[in-house]
């Protein structure tokens, strides 16, 4: 058996006396959608923040295995987690660069590639061919994703002027332009209408099936989670209480108890 794309091993995060995540372990596989669910305050976003370098975990390991090698995410600086290891994320609240154009948002995500091609701008300043080619390829990749999310007509509009649902998908496209191996999405369906949620589902399936990347998803919209997840991890009060495929999780008594808040005495 090959190593999983992401192996989270006894991840623990304490803030003073508060244990936000308590020895959580799970795997996320390449070309699978792995969802993390749980009631509010279960520690889902904290897991993401540890993965992307916002927090340094109190203990535990986060091992990412890609064809480029093994990366211990818990020891890496924030920008290197994307640059070297290839982990990209989106936020609950949209964080596009609103004053930049839609296409420019996608170009920013390809900065490192362009800088390498331009020999840190020397070639760019001289207008050499290699840089022009790289720039053209970057625009090409940007347009590819814009076609995919149906925003090609708005390429030169400021990103901040797009409707909410389009901004969500643009954010995912931007993350994909950094050509990640693992895409972490924090509640991408929040605030979307049912039609936009369907478009989002299509986009996530497309990424999983066509782009050789793993998707890690935090989501409250249960119908969406049940529909597109390959694997589900359930957190409650910072602990993992269940995991498995959607069917197994749906019928797991511990999960039902956590969600319905069933009283211990009554159930006894």
């Amino acid at each position: 058996m090959t190593a999983p794309l992401l192996a989270v091993d006894r991840l623990t995060m304490r803030f003073g006396g508060l244990v936000a995540i308590d020895a959580v372990s799970f795997h996320a596989e390449n070309q699978k959608i792995t969802s993390i669910i749980g009631p509010n305050g279960a520690g889902k976003t904290t897991v993401f923040n540890c993965l992307t370098g916002f927090y340094k975990p109190t203990s535990g390991r986060l091992l990412l295995t890609t064809p480029k090698g093994e990366f211990h995410l818990e020891r890496m600086e924030d920008f290197r987690i994307n640059q070297r290891a290839g982990v990209a994320r989106t936020f609950q609240n949209i964080r596009l660069f609103p004053a930049m154009s839609v296409l420019e948002n996608l170009m920013v995500a390809q900065h490192n590639k362009l800088m390498r091609a331009s020999v840190w701008s020397l070639a760019g300043l001289l207008g050499l061919g290699a840089y022009r080619r790289a720039e053209r390829d970057a625009v090409e990749l940007g347009r590819y994703w814009l076609e995919r999310i149906d925003l090609i007509d708005r390429a030169d509009k400021p990103a901040g002027d797009l409707p909410y649902g389009d901004q969500r998908r643009l954010e995912i496209a931007r993350a994909m332009c950094s050509e990640p191996r693992l895409l972490c999405l924090d509640e991408p369906a929040a605030g979307l209408n049912p039609r936009e949620t369907l478009l989002l589902n299509d986009l996530l399936r497309f990424i999983r099936d066509e782009h050789n990347a793993g998707v890690l998803l935090i989501e409250h919209d249960m119908s969406m989670v049940m529909e597109i997840s390959d694997h589900i991890v359930v957190l409650d009060y910072g602990r993992k209480i269940a995991e498995g495929d959607p069917e197994a999780v749906r019928n797991n008594p511990a999960v039902i108890r956590a969600y319905l808040g069933e009283d211990e005495e009554e159930s006894a």
């Binding site: 964080r95 004053a99 920013v108």
Partner: peptide
Amino acid sequence: RACEQDMKMAALLGL
């Protein structure tokens, strides 16, 4: 310009 608008997000995109 990206760092100017959202430094943390820029870092997460590998900048």
